[in-house]
Structures are given as C-alpha cells and as structure tokens.
Nucleic acid binder design. Structure first.
Lengths: 224, 224
DNA sequence: AGAATGCTTCGATAAGGAACGAACTATGCG
DNA sequence: CGCATAGTTCGTTCCTTATCGAAGCATTCT
C-alpha cells in the first residue's frame, strides 16, 4: 500500500459517465460553457456545475471567465494525452458497442485532438515534414529545421513567435499507434485547414472531413 | 451525449483506490496472486477477489492458473501505457503529497515499466542504440538494424525468434517525457540486467537500483 | 433601476458500490 | 481420505456520491 501519485483520484474523476462525456467533448479543443457541457453530458445544469468544480479541483480543467460566460477547457496536452490513452484501451477492450461505421472510419482518417489534427492524415503529414527535414525529430522531441520558417511563412504561419507552449510536440495517436504533430505549430496548421475550408468539423464529433479539393490542397502543401 | 468507446467504464475501474493500488503493483511486471494483491491494496481477500473479477471483466487483466495459484497480470502494454499516462497527470497535478525524496529520485533514474526498463537510464540506452544504428527508429516504430542480431547475440539475447509480440516498441516515459524501449527486446534486456545482477529491484517498489560495478557494465554494453 | 441570462450553492433523496464475515469450492499434501 | 491452503460467492451493512429543484449571486441589456 505504498503511496505514489494519487492515480485513483484522477481516474475516478474520469470514471463518472457525465464527467467523461464532458472531457470527451472538450477533446474537440474548443472551450465550452457549463450549459453546453451540461447538454453534452445529458445532465442538469446544477449537476454539471458540481462536476465541473470537481474537475477543476482535480486540476484537469482550466477556466477562462469572460464577462458572464465561463469557458472550461482541458488543462493541457498531458491531460488530453491521458484521455486518448484511456480511449485507446476502451476502444481495444470494449465490447464493440458500435460497429465500425462510416463515422468511425472518418475518425480514423482525421480528427481533432485537443487543438491539433490527429489520425492517418496527421501522421502522414508529420512523417513527410520530417522526411523533408522541415522538422527534425529525435524521439519525442521535435524541432524546427532550418527551412521551417520560410516554408511555413509561405502559407501564413509564423513559427518565430516564441510562446510559452512548445512550438512542436509529438502526440501519440491511438488509432494508428504512431505520433502526430502537436504544439502551437500543430494548432496553427489545424487553424489553417479549417480557415481555408479544406475540411469541416463533423457536427457533434471530433471527426474532420476533408472535401475532395481540400484534400488535394492539403496534400499539395504538406505531403508534396 | 454521443456514444463512443466507454471511457468512463475503464476509468472508473482504475478510479477505486484498492484497484489502483493493485494495478500499480502489477506495473512491476510480475504477475501476482489474489492474496498478494489483497495485501498490496490493503483490503481483505474477498474484497480483493471482487475487485479482481471486475478488472478481469473490464479486460484490464489476464489470468494464468497454475494449480491452486491464480496469477493476475496486466492485460498488455497498452494497459500499462494508460496507467503510466494517468500516473503522469497525477504526478503533475498532484498536491505534491510526497516530497521528492531519494526513492523518487531512484524511480526517475531507472524503474520497471511492466516488463522492461524505464527512466533516464532506459531513455539514454535507446538513444544510444539508435545513434549506433543498431536500432532504427521512425517515429514510434522501432526496427532492428542490420547489426542488431550479432550485437545482441554477443550478450546472449536472440532477436531472431519471432514471437507474437513486437520485438521493439517505443514506450513513453512520464518522468523524462521521452521514449524508451519496450517489446520483447526491452523485456529481454531487463531480464539480462537483473540476471547479471547489475541492478536489483527495490523491495516493494518499481525502482531499479544499479550497483556501481553493475552500472559500469551496463554502460559498457549499452552506452558505449 | 429593473429584468433577464448564466451559473453556482444548498438541501434532500436515492442509488450504487465497497467493505467484511461466513460459508462454499477447489487444489495440494500427508 | 482428511486436513490445510488458496480463492470465490453470498448476504449484509454502510458510506459515498450523483442527481435535481429551489434559491442565491453575478453580469449584461434595456
């Protein structure tokens, strides 16, 4: 009965269906209000509020107050990674509650993971960027290559601004068991994809659907 | 309230303190009996048994019956990875319940992760093996290099036997945020380390303590 | 100021599940 | 064959916690 980090505390926070639904919704990357999360989890507003304060106290969420709106979001990439890991196990072990339909297929191809793109497309993109030495990877560490600033500047992404968060980070992909690109650069690329309307977010899902021309444009820029 | 994989179910299995302690104990890699796990979790035998059947039903454990002994073990590397991910969050978020003492330091340097070595030593080892082209890594995928068979044969490890489980696999390290070597090769190397008595397992802990000559020998073989 | 929205706190209820002792099954030993 | 050890099942008790309605704050709009 040794005392390590309190893993049961964290796991039990995720272990409630209502809270799990909320966290899952937040994996979409956008911060949501208490009412939206209540709807998402299928509980009343007071109940949701209670859950949210527990998640806050547990350090899994961050809160941004804007006037009378209070936006809840995942506390960070590490939390998002944990949720993906649990999802992976649930997926593998689960009694195939949903047969792999077209929606699951879409999730496998491309989905939002917290604030960046995940799925086969994202894995392929990272591979190609590394192959072209635009990014340099050494294990989990990913660094910008010499040609990165000009390459990304050409598509309107500034990688020179140095924010608190790392620019590049590898994030593990449960569907493909490979890594894809996270960090501010990963987030910026997802922004770009949605801004250019190369793809749209599936309503009420983390799936990202590329339009045929959008896919071509994406591949031209990132997989060429 | 969309229906994905049942993440709450899995998380709530880990979310009970008794079960969390059991899983944590099993992260040591050796399968344990119900009585041992009961002791570990600080509960009575019937209680432990009940928890164990829940974990079994949830697909998190495997059971190997040997006579009147029933050995429980983690269901696989994916489950182990999930536990490490949750541990990482708990560690980061946790109210520093235990100040980083010598034991924590040891865990950071080298520890057992399921069936292979983790920690700074393990990360350094993988880096070096890749650097020497004995292993080839491309993202999470790790393959054997041409010189691998002879190199490992020299220290009594046969990498040509092809079992079901992959020979090489990257496993994420919460203490260092980098990957170390898992898979059958990772397991074989840990075996080797313990067999040669280069290091000993800390009693009741996942920490692995190298003796001064053992550390030299290890570095000569794997970090040279 | 007054009304309306967004959210949290309070209080009561109810359900789930963790705990243990006792009884039961199964394997191994003399 | 009996006794001991390892483990599961059963039944009961008890505590935790999820839930919602009603009431209370806070912020914005008119």
């Amino acid at each position: 009965m040794r005392e390590g980090p309190d893993i049961a505390r964290i796991a039990s926070l995720v272990g409630d269906p209502a809270r799990a639904n909320m966290l899952n919704a937040l994996m979409g990357g956008t911060a949501l209000t208490a009412s939206e999360l209540a709807l998402e989890a299928g509980v009343s507003l007071p109940t949701a509020s209670s859950h949210l304060s527990k998640l806050m106290e547990g350090g899994l969420l961050t809160l941004a107050s804007q006037g009378r709106h209070r936006y809840y979001g995942l506390a960070g990439p590490q939390v998002a990674g944990m949720i993906e890991a649990i999802t992976g196990v649930a997926e593998a072990v689960g009694p195939k509650r949903v047969r792999p339909g077209p929606r699951d297929g879409a999730m496998r191809v491309a989905r939002v993971c917290y604030d960046h793109l995940a799925g086969e497309q994202a894995v392929a993109m990272l591979d190609r960027l590394v192959e072209k030495d635009i990014l340099l990877r050494d294990d989990r560490e990913i660094r910008l290559g010499p040609s990165a600033p000009s390459h990304f500047a050409a598509i309107g992404i500034d990688v020179d601004a140095k924010p608190r968060r790392p620019v590049c980070r590898a994030c593990l992909d449960w569907s493909v068991r490979r890594s894809h690109l996270a960090g501010t650069l990963g987030a910026a690329i997802l922004d770009k994809i949605l801004l250019e309307k190369w793809a749209r977010r599936e309503k009420d899902s983390r799936a990202v659907i590329f339009s045929p021309p959008g896919k071509q444009a994406f591949e031209k820029v990132f997989l060429a």
